[in-house]
Write a protein that binds this DNA or RNA. Structure first.
Lengths: 338, 338
DNA sequence: AAAACTTTATGAATCGATTCAGGCTCGATT
DNA sequence: AATCGAGCCTGAATCGATTCATAAAGTTTT
């Protein structure tokens, strides 16, 4: 109803629309007097810039799309928070999409973001979406991969060295005397999962003695899947239990923990040690405080958004891979009280 | 570069731009032949609708803003997820803003959403933002309050009966034999906090015998604040400990739990029973599985978005308050093993 | 005092989709 | 045969901010 446009502001201030636009976008080029009168008019009329018109004409967007793999995972909550912080510095808002590891949803959100002509896209991809991202790029929409190394270097990425993390986790288990280790994780379409497993394998092979490394596959990285995997493991005869479990993320680990210690069937870490990945804030508060590989989640989000903005400012920039090192956080779940 | 517009599609299909627009928006009014040719042209040229132009001319937006109080809290993650699910049915995307209980950020996001001319706003408000929301409404942007009852009925809301929840929680504590109860929560600007406390008070007063109900204030509803409050409590002489704690949400409760049981100083629930609010998915996996008041978080999000869309479709609708009942979930933190 | 710049302001053209008054065809009705 | 209406289609006008060629006013240089 109100519908105050730049024209109304111009009239009220007694200047042209061009001048109002200049006050809004390059106040330096306008006389102090004009700036004052325009600002007063904006105040009086309650003018709010119409972003659609602005975007249409100027082709600049103030939103960035973020496609997240698993919104239930506090890890991604932290990453989004980091991106949001960085974005709010420059008036960038985040269009949020949660795929829950579903390629259809992934595509849907990328389509949506393309129509919206977002400034760029942050994405923790599930499948292989390079072709989709190439297409976005050809329309001037940059993309930065989050929590996923861009192997072919076609896009910038911000991630943690999952292979190193997997290695460090299993080295820690071996160093604390474990020899029969189970890797719990899946699906194996997820690069994060295969990388962490690869690191685990490397650690097992370089141990200098024989290490059993078995793989227990899950359908997804959720608490429920972790609990199911745990139930499967302890259903075996006790002699075939692993003496340590490396879970591909903390949600799995927390689910595993729950199903292992229920009824006191299994002592953690005495019977089975347990380590997760991500170090979400609930890991420390778990039934048995959970050892984990910490990712600098908030920093990942901040950095990803910063790189995205840099790239949209200068499309000539060469994609760069930012890799943080994960950090081993040792808690009770891998350190038997003696 | 590509920049395929509706004009290019029209040309390729040998029809006018009006017809292309009709195919896009009301295919029923166009001959089958035209529909076919236009769709083929769209396919061939890789046309993607320009949402900015559409929004400018038609005044309809495909985004909804969601201002969340605490993005770190998995409860809100679930609520957002519910809204997202409901939105994706009708091609609505969510612009996400996290205020972290900061009124400045709250205002910033509402400004941003106003510029964006979002279809509507879902908000779990911190302070009193009715004036801001009234203003948005006067510009045709509807708002629905989430996790907060709209006392004056000026806006629709979707929430859980926090007073009843507080009452049920404390009734449960009393029924299990507790008499010296501490309510831990804050800040008291948050309606959720004062409501839960009011419910707790009601339960204490109606107990039929004397119940001590003390209030331990916190700065925010976080794990860290919970841990700090716990430390303060057990720093007292043991005789002045409460025998039960009702925490205003699960994050506080998990923090409390951590600081209480560290070094085995306090037995939970034997020395102090503990109940939280929200029943986030990590409550069940806590060191001592946490009793809590469950909120139907995902349903809250779905419902809020549905109501918002209904209201934007028909602005004459009278605001309605949807209140779900919380559900007591009893776990080990309030049930002493005998 | 004229020429050459600077600084500042103007307002029409533009971005791309939607809308709508008007036009064309063709069969049905009178 | 004339009139009417249904069904489709057309294309100019429109939404509101930005941009840019042009101009006016003021300042410095020669």
């Amino acid at each position: 109803m109100a519908a105050v446009s730049i024209r109304d502001v111009a009239q009220h201030a007694g200047v042209s629309v061009g001048t109002v636009s200049n006050v809004l976008n390059r106040p330096g080029e306008v006389s102090a007097e004009s700036v004052r009168r325009v600002q007063e008019a904006i105040e009086v009329l309650g003018y709010v810039r119409n972003d659609a018109a602005r975007k249409l004409r100027a082709g600049v967007s103030t939103t960035v799309g973020f496609v997240v793999l698993d919104g239930q995972n506090p890890f991604f909550g932290d990453v989004v928070r980091g991106a949001e912080d960085e974005g709010s510095k420059s008036g960038i808002a985040i269009l949020y999409g949660n795929t829950d590891e579903d390629p259809k949803r992934e595509r849907m959100y990328l389509d949506l973001f393309e129509e919206q002509q977002v400034r760029g896209v942050l994405i923790s991809p599930y499948g292989d979406i390079n072709p989709r991202l190439e297409r976005l790029r050809s329309r001037g929409i940059a993309a930065v991969l989050v929590d996923r190394f861009s192997g072919d270097g076609r896009f910038s990425s911000v991630s943690v060295d999952s292979v190193a993390g997997g290695r460090m986790a299993v080295e820690h288990l071996i160093a604390t005397g474990r020899r029969r280790i189970a890797f719990v994780g899946g699906p194996f379409e997820m690069r994060q999962v295969t990388d962490r497993l690869a690191g685990a394998r490397a650690a097992a092979e370089n141990a200098g003695e024989h290490i059993d490394l078995e793989v227990v596959a899950t359908d997804a990285l959720t608490v429920a899947d972790g609990a199911a995997a745990g139930a499967r493991i302890i259903a075996r005869p006790r002699s075939q239990w692993p003496d340590a479990i490396f879970a591909a993320n903390d949600l799995l680990a927390l689910g595993l923990l729950q199903s292992l210690i229920v009824d006191g069937r299994v002592l953690v870490p005495d019977d089975i040690a347990l380590i997760g990945f991500d170090d979400i804030s609930f890991a420390a508060a778990a039934a048995v405080p959970l050892s984990s590989m910490r990712q600098p989640s908030r920093m990942i989000g901040r950095t990803a958004l910063r790189i995205l903005l840099e790239e949209t400012a200068d499309p000539e920039l060469i994609p760069r891979q930012t890799v943080f090192q994960p950090e081993l956080v040792v808690r009770a779940s891998t350190t038997p009280r003696r």
